[in-house]
């Protein structure tokens, strides 16, 4: 790059009114000579080859730079930075606030869950109690019904037994009267006199062993 820049050195000449260059190619030599003459004559102007070193513009640049910096510093320190700082700390506050609120909600959710669990347990206990009560009642009714049925069965059994007993006694009576009649008839047939009392006694004695 420098090799390109170096071409710009003799230029001063074109600005110095003393020399006029028409053809750059053959003017190179003249330009160099004139440049040195010009440099010697106007030392300040030769420094203008690099615009940054042109002292005549320094005052202007420095003045406007100071104005710009002062305005910028004032705006930043009075308006912009406090505002941004405020926004950042607000956000920090909001975030911590939100975190705390979230923690609170979590706590509440936990409490609600505990309450729910408790209600569930209560309901279950209640249900168990009701089931037990119903069971007891049913048991009682059942017992009563069984007892009633038992009593009925016992009554029927007793009645049946009584009837059987009656049938049996009637059967014994029948057998006895048949035996008496048969005995009397036999005695009569064999020519004996039938004494009613004797016959009865004999038959009873005989039947005692057989019918009991």
């Amino acid at each position: 790059m420098i090799s390109l820049l170096q071409q710009t050195a003799p230029v001063v000449v074109e600005q110095t009114e003393t020399v006029t260059i028409t053809e750059s190619a053959d003017a190179a030599g003249h330009a160099a000579d004139a440049a040195h003459a010009a440099a010697a004559a106007h030392g300040a102007e030769s420094a203008a080859g690099m615009p940054q070193l042109d002292i005549s513009t320094f005052g202007n640049q420095i003045f406007w730079l100071l104005v710009t910096l002062a305005v910028l510093y004032w705006v930043l320190s009075r308006i912009a930075l406090p505002r941004i700082g405020g926004v950042l700390s607000d956000r920090q506050g909001a975030i911590t606030g939100d975190l705390m609120a979230a923690e609170e909600f979590k706590q509440k959710a936990k409490e609600a869950e505990a309450a729910y669990d408790k209600a569930l347990a209560d309901a279950r206990a209640e249900a168990n109690k009701i089931v037990a009560a119903n069971k007891a009642e049913i048991q009682k009714e059942l017992d009563k019904a069984i007892a009633k049925a038992d009593a009925e069965i016992a009554a029927r059994t007793a009645e049946s037994e009584k009837r059987i007993g009656e049938i049996r006694t009637s059967a014994v009576e029948d057998a006895r009267s048949v035996a008496r009649d048969v005995t009397e008839e036999l005695v009569r047939t064999f020519g004996g006199t039938s004494d009613q009392a004797l016959v009865n006694e004999a038959v009873d004695q005989r039947l005692k062993g057989a019918l009991q």
Binding site: L5, Q6, A9, M50
Partner: peptide, 8 residues
């Protein structure tokens, strides 16, 4: 330094 040599 190069620039100063060339221009200044």
């Amino acid at each position: 330094v190069a620039l100063l040599l060339l221009f200044a």
